[in-house]
Simulated assay, not measured.
Amino acid sequence: MSDPCRLTLDEDVLAAARAHAQADYPRESCGLVVLVDGVQRYRPCRNLADGQSHFVLAPEDYAQAEGEGEVLAVVHSHPNAAPEPSEADRVMMERWGLPWLILNVPVGHWCLWHPEGYRPPLVGRTFSHGVLDCFSLLRDYYRERLGLELPDVERPDDWWAKGGNLYLEGYARAGFVDVTGQALREHDVLLMQLRAPVPNHAGVYLGDDVLLHHVMGRLSTRETYSGFWQRITQRVVRHASLC
């Protein structure tokens, strides 16, 4: 028996999405399936991401699609890769709360995926800047372990090299106070300067000289907080509720 909550896509929509994916190849395409006057329509959108390995759907395009009708699904392509969601795709699918149509190009295989409550593990998650990175690990840790919801912020690629100062300008607004120089406590946040002009990396102190963090190009991990990580730590902050 089919699930009535599962979306079925019209052939015209699939054909239009395939054509868009082929046209944008080898860059990832992205678009939306919109229900307009009872008919499914595919609306190609602009991909604002740097590089070719991921997509950032233009918010103006999403707003325009919402003005036309009901957004039913998010669409994007996987150039030269299977139409299976990456860990970042699964996280974003949950945030959007919509099915995702993923198409392989140039072969043309596709699969429609639905949100199922996925939550990435704190240790062993893959890295995807802006979705699964040191900042999102910090937010997830505080939500899961302490029940605290920290504000999210937009963080473009290489923000630290473009005049941004996300951590030093934002920790107070997020409810943290500077405790640099005091004895470390469990749940303290360590702000580190990793080959950048400003602190651009953060980790959580777990106690017993253990650091939880997520470095670009690596899985999130626990490791000993000593040596290199101590040397590049510029600031220690603690949530006001824990002081």
Rank of each mutant, 00 (worst) to 15 (best):
S2T: 09
D3P: 01
P4T: 10
P4C: 10
P4N: 11
R6Y: 06
L7A: 02
T8V: 15
L9I: 13
L9T: 02
V13D: 03
L14M: 12
L14E: 12
A16T: 03
A17N: 06
Q22Y: 12
A23N: 05
V36Y: 09
Q40P: 02
R43D: 00
N47H: 11
N47P: 00
L48C: 08
G51Q: 07
G51E: 02
Q52W: 02
S53L: 11
H54Q: 10
A58L: 05
P59S: 04
P59H: 08
P59Q: 03
Y62G: 03
A63S: 05
A65S: 06
G67I: 02
G67E: 02
G67F: 03
E68L: 15
E70R: 15
V71A: 13
V71T: 11
P79C: 03
N80A: 14
A81M: 05
E84W: 15
S86I: 01
E87V: 02
A88E: 09
A88L: 11
V91H: 07
M92C: 12
M92A: 06
M92V: 14
R95Q: 13
W96E: 11
L101C: 07
L101N: 08
L103A: 01
G108P: 02
H109K: 12
C111N: 10
H114C: 07
P120M: 04
P120V: 01
P121L: 08
L122D: 06
R125H: 05
T126E: 15
V131P: 04
F135T: 12
S136R: 15
S136G: 10
S136F: 07
L137W: 04
L137M: 06
L138I: 11
R139Q: 14
P151S: 01
V153C: 09
V153L: 14
V153R: 15
E154A: 14
E154F: 08
W159R: 10
G164Q: 10
G164A: 09
Y167V: 01
E169N: 12
E169S: 09
G170A: 06
Y171L: 07
Y171W: 08
A172H: 07
A174F: 01
A174D: 07
G175D: 09
D178V: 01
G181L: 12
Q182A: 14
R185Y: 03
D188L: 05
L190M: 14
L190T: 13
L191Y: 06
L191A: 13
L191I: 08
Q193Y: 10
R195K: 13
A196W: 11
P197W: 08
H201R: 12
G203Q: 01
Y205A: 13
L206M: 13
D208F: 01
V210H: 05
L211H: 06
L212Y: 12
H213Y: 01
M216G: 03
M216K: 10
R218N: 00
T221N: 05
R222T: 10
Y225F: 15
G227D: 00
F228R: 15
F228N: 09
W229R: 15
I232E: 00
V236Q: 09
C243A: 11
